[in-house]
């Protein structure tokens, strides 16, 4: 199996889809000749040409809005928002239309499209380029929200998202684009949307995370095992909507303790929903209050001080120790 980073893996998923299905096309700013500001669309313009890898004017609303229209004639557009922070320009098309067409037309018109959003901090980017706002999309009915954490799941989930009959918000942790390599199978594979993965088994406490926060979470789990004798189970959510409640609660029912880790703000973040589901389903299995280790309810600072905002392994370790000591 070839080794590759997440940037290459996402590229591979789009390349495969473009090869297999002439209805698939890629739309976005600088996705063509320039191959995307993160080079995620590398080589696609050269292979598929300007009609299928479309450099659009700088207009997010039109990128999403026209993609919706393309769906009505059977196309399957993949839209790229250059940074998640500019996706709000397309918000009304997503909330008022993309998420609703199937429901309001009782299935006559649907939007089998993907909108990709590079999100998150940790890459020394300028203002408005580092936010983590997945909860906004999770809150909207009618959308699936997927967040990969590594090369293999990125490729398999992007493929699943492109094949999905409904609209998917594909939220890409750009801090992971080139952070590490992994083996990715030769043959196309899909991971089911809506299914979390148990990435580490443990007895004492369940850590739940996703996207770029998974790495500090796993680092913390290693250190807690080696230095503190605490055995952590770690769940990588992969899909935030629909959320895989079953995987979460069955783990909690074994460990009795939970810590949720994400870089997005705490209030009404994914952690809030996860805690609610655990409490609804598994309250009596809990042996301690659940801890949220998250970004604060503030704007993420400009990059010189963003490390004080982003949850790191140390903050996860303190959170876990607190929960275990309860």
């Amino acid at each position: 199996m070839p080794q590759m980073n997440m940037a290459k893996a996402l590229n591979l998923a789009m390349r495969e889809a473009l090869r297999e299905d002439p209805n698939v096309l890629v739309l976005g700013q600088d996705v063509g000749k320039d191959e995307g500001v993160f080079r995620i669309t590398e080589g696609l313009y050269a292979e598929f040409g300007e009609n299928r890898v479309v450099d659009t004017p700088v207009a997010e609303s039109a990128i999403v809005g026209t993609a919706i229209g393309m769906c009505f004639k059977g196309l399957r557009p993949i839209c790229e928002m250059q940074f998640s922070g500019f996706g709000y320009h397309g918000f009304h098309q997503i909330e008022n239309h993309m998420s609703r067409f199937r429901n309001r037309t009782r299935g006559r018109l649907t939007c089998p499209m993907v909108v990709r959003f590079p999100y998150g901090g940790g890459i020394r980017a300028i203002e408005h380029h580092s936010e983590s706002r997945e909860a906004i999309w999770v809150h909207l009915p009618g959308l699936k929200v997927v967040v990969p954490s590594g090369p293999r799941n990125a490729r398999a989930l992007l493929r699943a998202s492109i094949l999905d009959p409904d609209p998917v918000i594909f939220y890409e942790p750009k801090a992971c684009y080139r952070s590490h390599q992994e083996e990715v199978p030769e043959q196309p594979e899909t991971f089911p949307i809506g299914k979390a993965q148990l990435v580490r088994e443990g007895r004492d406490v369940t850590l739940i995370s996703y996207g770029a926060s998974l790495r500090p979470t796993l680092e913390a789990a290693d250190e807690l095992a080696s230095d503190h004798g605490i055995d952590c189970e770690v769940i990588d959510l992969l899909t935030l909507s629909p959320l895989d409640t079953e995987t979460i609660t069955s783990s909690i029912e074994r460990t009795g303790r939970a810590v949720v880790v994400h870089e997005a703000p705490r209030t009404c973040g994914m952690g809030a929903e996860i805690v609610a589901r655990i409490v609804e389903r598994s309250l009596l299995h809990l042996e301690a209050p659940i801890k949220r280790v998250t970004g604060y309810d503030t704007i993420i600072p400009f990059f010189a001080t963003e490390k004080y905002y982003l949850p790191d392994a140390d903050r996860v370790i303190s959170g876990v120790k607190e929960v275990v000591a309860f």
């Binding site: 600088d30 500001v37 450099d55 004017p57 700088v58």
Partner: peptide, 11 residues
């Protein structure tokens, strides 16, 4: 230019 987009493709 708008990054890689030439003026003629903006309008």
């Amino acid at each position: 230019w708008a990054i890689s987009l030439p003026r003629c493709k903006t309008s």
